[in-house]
């Protein structure tokens, strides 16, 4: 707990939390939202295609979009760390925060498995996907949905920092 208090009282944390500058909290949270759009957006596009939407759309070229996905993820890892840091004693004692982290961890493991099963397969664009791959895609959507919901609810459950 002492460490958490230290963390949220470093000069940087105080600046993020209390600076009236738009470049502090508002822009950091904005980058977090855009990162989410990039990361989940690309991931959801791939999942939906696997699940059977837009059947004539080739999936193989979608691999080119992975750098965008990782760009979004990196943006969120960095801004997310800052956002937790500036409100450490509240966020790191909030169960909802750990729920979000678990969903993100599951989504990442799932993504890794999907990438191996789908994009390493030379038969990728021949015929429908086996059931097990479709399950992975559905789970991916579910995990991201869980992460977004848990993340959004951080503003409402537990002791609330940041905006208040």
């Amino acid at each position: 707990m002492e460490f958490l208090h230290w963390l949220e009282n470093t000069g940087f944390s105080i600046w993020v939390r209390e600076s009236p500058s738009i470049w502090a909290f508002p822009v950091i949270l904005l980058v977090h939202t855009i990162g989410m759009a990039l990361c989940v957006g690309v991931s959801a596009g791939i999942d939906l295609r696997i699940l059977g939407f837009a059947p004539s759309l080739k999936l193989a070229p979608f691999e080119r979009y992975f750098p965008i996905l990782w760009l979004g993820f990196t943006m969120n890892a960095v801004t997310g760390t800052i956002l937790v840091m500036q409100d450490a004693s509240a966020k790191l004692t909030n169960v909802d925060f750990y729920v979000k982290m678990v969903f993100i961890a599951l989504a990442l493991i799932n993504l890794k498995m999907l990438r191996t099963r789908v994009f390493r397969d030379p038969q990728i664009d021949r015929g429908p996907f086996p059931g097990s791959v479709k399950v992975l895609a559905a789970l991916s959507l579910f995990f991201w949905l869980g992460a977004i919901t848990a993340g959004r609810l951080l503003a409402y459950v537990g002791s609330i920092g940041g905006l208040s």
């Binding site: 939202t33 989410m36 759009a37 990039l38 989940v40 957006g41 690309v42 959801a44 596009g45 939906l48 979608f62 979009y65 965008i68 991201w144 949905l145 977004i148 919901t149 993340g151 959004r152």
Partner: peptide, 14 residues
């Protein structure tokens, strides 16, 4: 609202 945002961006980006 945030889920809808991701759905929109999925298509806009692709």
């Amino acid at each position: 609202h945030f889920v809808g945002l991701c759905m929109l961006f999925a298509v806009v980006l692709a």
